[in-house]
Every structure is written in structure tokens, then in C-alpha cells.
Design a protein around this nucleic acid. Structure first.
Length: 209
DNA sequence: CACCAGGAATGTA
DNA sequence: TACATTCATGGT
């Protein structure tokens, strides 16, 4: 198992090189993007973030003080704008209540994860994305692409989030940089092949099937 | 026209 | 616990 996961990582890395995720200018923007991208194409998230930047609302403080309807209007391209506007408000308030990034960064990872999960609008993937890419904690992010990859290569047939997360974390060196890069490469590869080419011909993981 | 995209909350049995 | 439904825009 361990060898397979490391083999996959190196094949992806050889093909695409470092991705240096998350694609954002600030930590606040990562949090915002993590919510906006829930079940949504990243292209549409980019439009929403452009709107927020133009309105000077692309920060947690900005979201805190923004009018909810203005917020909705800005993030409309990302879909589910009624829910996501509330979610963003919840998360911005949460950060504010706990002393912002520096305040929350004092907490241990397990505690911080539970607190993030208690915020309405933050599920497992969003929480782990924030833990990994904002707080630099060694947590493996599992998304639809990750589940599909493991299923396709017969590594794990169950689609349970915690199960899949454990498979990665128990069989890889516990390294923040590795976890960041691995998840980024899985997304990159999925967008490159599995999406546009159903047969996955030319995919760097072809030999593993 | 249908289907999907870097999910999560809510309701039902 | 295990599923089903809802949320919404833009691309293919």
C-alpha cells in the first residue's frame, strides 16, 4: 500500500511538477475559496473571487462587515449563493471570535478541526483544506477526485471520507509539504485527463490499472 | 436537452 | 448508520 501511494505521487510529480497550492493571494482568500468551491467548478469560484476583490470584500473582515445581500450578489457565479453567503458569514465570525488566524493557530490540530467542523458550512473537506493550506497542519484532504482515483485503481472501494484519509495518512510520511502537493497533483491530474478524456489515455497512472 | 463541478446540511427510516 | 433531497451557476 505504502509503495503504491508513493509511486502514484512520484508519477504525478514527474508529469506535472510542483503545483504550489492553494491558488490564492492570502490566507483569507483560501478560506473563502474553500467554501465557494464546494461542489462547484473552480472557474466559477474565480469569477466570484474577482467580484469580491473588486468590491474590496475578499477578506474575512470584509465579509464580516459586508451586507449579506451584497455578498450574495458578489458570489453569485459560484452557485448556491444563498447558502454560501451565510457560510462565509459564519466562518468570518468564527475567526473573529477566536482571535483570528493567530488565535486559532495556538490550538492543537485535533481541537481546531473539531471547532471548524462545528461551524455551519464547514464539512470535513473544507475543514481539512483550511487546516492544511491555511494553518499548515499535516492533514490529508480527501475530495471527489481522490475517492475516484482510489476506486479506479482498486486501492479502496469504500467511499468513506475518514477511511480514505487514514489510508493516505497511515501510509505516507507525515509531511505538510507532501500532503499539500499530493492533493494538488490529484486535482491537476483529474482536470487534465479524467474530465476531458474518459479513457484516460496518456494519464501518468495508466500502468497501475 | 442532460449532466457535471475541488460539498454540506437536512430529513427520513 | 445509510441514503435521499436541496442548494444554483456556468461549461460541455
Amino acid at each position: 500500500m505504502r509503495g503504491v501511494l508513493i509511486d502514484i505521487f512520484h508519477r504525478l510529480l514527474d508529469r506535472y511538477s510542483n503545483q504550489n497550492w492553494w491558488p490564492a493571494d492570502t490566507k483569507d482568500e483560501i478560506v473563502i475559496g474553500a467554501v465557494l468551491t464546494q461542489n462547484t467548478a473552480w472557474r466559477n469560484v474565480e469569477r466570484a473571487i474577482e467580484n469580491l476583490k473588486r468590491s474590496n470584500l475578499c477578506s474575512l473582515d470584509g465579509i464580516n462587515s459586508a451586507d449579506i445581500d451584497v455578498l450574495k450578489e458578489n458570489i453569485k457565479p459560484a452557485g448556491f449563493f444563498n447558502q454560501k453567503a451565510s457560510y462565509l458569514k459564519n466562518i468570518a465570525a468564527f475567526f473573529c471570535q477566536h482571535g483570528g488566524f493567530d488565535g486559532l493557530n495556538r490550538l492543537d490540530t485535533a481541537r481546531l478541526r473539531k471547532m471548524l467542523l462545528s461551524v455551519k458550512g464547514i464539512g470535513k473537506e473544507t475543514a481539512d483544506s483550511i487546516l492544511l493550506y491555511v494553518f499548515d497542519r499535516p492533514i490529508f484532504v480527501v475530495d471527489a477526485y481522490t475517492k475516484r482515483l482510489l476506486k479506479r485503481h482498486g486501492i479502496a472501494h469504500e467511499a468513506e471520507y475518514d477511511q480514505i484519509q487514514r489510508i493516505f495518512m497511515e501510509n505516507l510520511p507525515c509531511d505538510v509539504g507532501l500532503f499539500k502537493e499530493y492533493h494538488a497533483l490529484i486535482v491537476r491530474n483529474a482536470k487534465e485527463f479524467c474530465k476531458t478524456r474518459p479513457d484516460c489515455s496518456g494519464c501518468p497512472l495508466e500502468g497501475l490499472l
